[in-house]
Write a protein that binds this DNA or RNA. Structure first.
Length: 512
RNA sequence: GCUCUGGUGGUGUAGUCCGGCCAAUCAUAUCACCCUCUCACGGUGAUGACCAGGGUUCAAAUCCCUGCCGGAGCACCA
């Protein structure tokens, strides 16, 4: 009885058990834990990036996990740009689209895209309502003074202002009548709350710098994350929130606002930070941005940058990254993502479809480039495009006007080496003398098999995380197009980036 | 300092709520062998973990206590 038959049989005998059994089965192949109180078709989540730069790998975790939950629960997710800080974490106008591209690359599509900077009036309205209820007050304490009072659990004098005054002063904030730092609107929580992080927090502050988006450039009074995000999560119908542990107290702060409005707080899961091994560069948008500005990195997709764009340019599929991220789960402890697991996923995805090719590196690390004439053999070698799929055909690599190999692969004088896909040659003083194509030389006599290229093959630059390597590729490289993947035999997988028959072509190294 | 919150092999994860089927799952990693005209793929095998100490119990990764170590918040950043 196969599983289908078994299913039918159960449906006949005990239809009420079928659901139960199936839900158990399902539980087994979900790498992510169940969401609390989640029902199919009624889950709505959001990814809420600040568009102050393109995404690094850590950001991809949010989209990966939320997108996976969306598929699993047949739910929805929206992308909400929390771009309410025109100054300290100033939005980058290019990042909005870059982030949406990254989400698409990961294989997901938001059901809706909103920008907080389009919704400032909505936040004002809710602030007015909050003030009306006595849930907020305007405060002109200097930051440090308030901090001291708060830490000792004491209210500041502004806390007892009457509602009318607060309302007036808030309108003055909205109208931009204060300078940056002069006035804020605080939410009245519990000034003696045992957790100092929850005591009267700022909901709105003044910012002199205009927002980079033209549509929002007129605002000077901006909401803080705790207010904006809290209000939006409710208004946008979010049922489940996933975010970093740094925002753990945020949920509690927002809880006060929700209580004033009589709203129910969404389910929330907090997870730890992700680090990715294999990178020297700190994974923060601002650090990467600085390195680019200083010229240390070529751009957001430099192979050394720990960004989504970089992985993409290296030919790593979004799916490989998503799977690795999902396997990390949602635990509250910090996790290290081993990049090797992303590579393993990607290899699995692309190996069968990826053609093989030769690339001979001209680098001291591999003994430099050595050129030799081949005498006495066929005109060309014909290795298969893929060893497991002979029917895809063979490559045609001429040995004229000579071949290049990596110095480390050059045998001693008088010794033999097997030019892969061509045959066995003996290294004489200044040439490779063809010996034959009897494979027993390799199988039984220990002759090494090496990759090679015609001396006049296309120049290729391979960009890797450890820097660039130039060298010579086999002529067939010129037949590929940008975005094609190749496996350089004995080197690893790479993405074709630029094909230039007359100058230098470029490929990006993906992984071994 | 105050307040949260965690600790399963190199990495991640399952198991922890409801103690026994856990001498601990799966993946990745590493090593070895096999396969091989690639250092890829595939096959076989091996390596490797319950933070520590007490307690409860016939039985503890799981419950309790203490300790140790880590992460986060206490911003007019998100």
């Amino acid at each position: 009885m196969d599983s289908e038959q078994r299913r039918e049989r159960i449906a006949e005998l005990a239809p009420e058990k079928l659901d139960e059994i199936e839900s158990e089965d399902e539980g087994d192949d979900h790498p992510l834990p169940d969401l609390p109180n989640a029902e199919d078709g009624e889950v709505r989540m959001r990814v809420a990036p600040n568009p102050n730069g393109p995404w690094h790998i850590g950001h991809a975790r949010m989209a990966a996990v939320i997108g996976t939950y969306k598929d699993r629960y047949d739910g929805e997710f929206i992308c909400r740009f929390d771009d309410t800080d025109p100054e300290t974490k100033r939005p980058d106008l290019d990042a909005y689209d870059a982030i949406l591209d990254a989400i698409e690359y990961l294989g997901f599509e938001p059901d809706d895209v909103v920008k907080a900077s389009d919704r400032v009036d909505v936040y004002y309205d809710h602030a007015r309502e909050l003030i009306e209820q006595g849930g907020a007050y305007t405060c002109s304490c200097p930051q440090g003074e308030f901090s001291d009072l708060k830490n000792s659990g004491e209210a500041c004098p502004h806390r007892e202002k009457d509602t009318e005054t607060v309302a007036e002063e808030f309108e003055a904030m909205v109208d931009g009548e204060y300078e940056s730092g002069e006035m804020v609107l605080r939410v009245r929580t519990d000034i003696t709350h045992k957790n100092p992080a929850l005591r009267d927090f700022v909901a709105f502050r003044m910012i002199d710098t205009p927002h980079p988006r033209e549509e929002a450039a007129q605002y000077r009074c901006w909401p803080m994350l705790d207010f904006q995000s809290g209000v939006d999560d409710h208004l946008l119908g979010i049922t489940h929130i996933i975010r970093g542990i740094d925002l753990q107290d945020s949920a509690k702060r927002q809880g006060f606002v929700y209580d004033y409005f009589g709203w129910e707080y969404p389910e929330v899961v907090h997870w730890g930070h992700v680090q990715v091994d294999a990178y020297d560069v700190s994974m923060s948008t601002s650090t990467i941005g600085e390195l680019i500005a200083e010229g240390e990195l070529d751009g957001w997709d430099d192979p050394r940058a720990p960004t989504v764009a970089s992985l993409r340019r290296r030919g790593i599929r979004g799916e490989a990254l998503v799977d690795a991220m999902v396997e990390l789960g949602t635990s509250t402890s910090d996790v290290d993502l081993a990049i090797s697991s992303v590579y393993a996923n990607n290899r699995e995805l692309i190996d069968d479809d990826t053609d093989r090719a030769f690339f001979v590196r001209d680098d001291e690390a591999f003994g430099g480039l050595v050129e030799r004439q081949v005498v006495g053999g066929p005109d060309a070698g014909h290795p298969p495009l893929h060893p497991d799929f002979e029917d895809r055909g063979r490559r045609d690599i001429p040995v004229d006007p000579g071949v290049v190999v990596e110095g480390d692969d050059l045998p001693d004088h008088g010794d033999r080496v097997w030019l892969k896909g061509y045959g066995c040659v003996r290294h004489t003083r200044d040439a490779f003398e063809y010996v034959g194509d009897d494979i027993t030389a390799v199988r039984e006599e220990g002759v090494d098999v090496v990759h090679w290229a015609p001396a006049d093959g296309p120049e290729l630059r391979l960009r890797t995380m450890d820097g660039d390597v130039t060298g010579v590729a086999e002529p067939g490289y010129l037949d590929y197009e940008a975005d094609d993947m190749l496996q350089f035999e004995r080197i690893g997988f790479a993405r074709v980036d630029r094909v230039d028959p007359d100058g230098e072509s470029v490929a990006y190294f993906a992984h071994p």
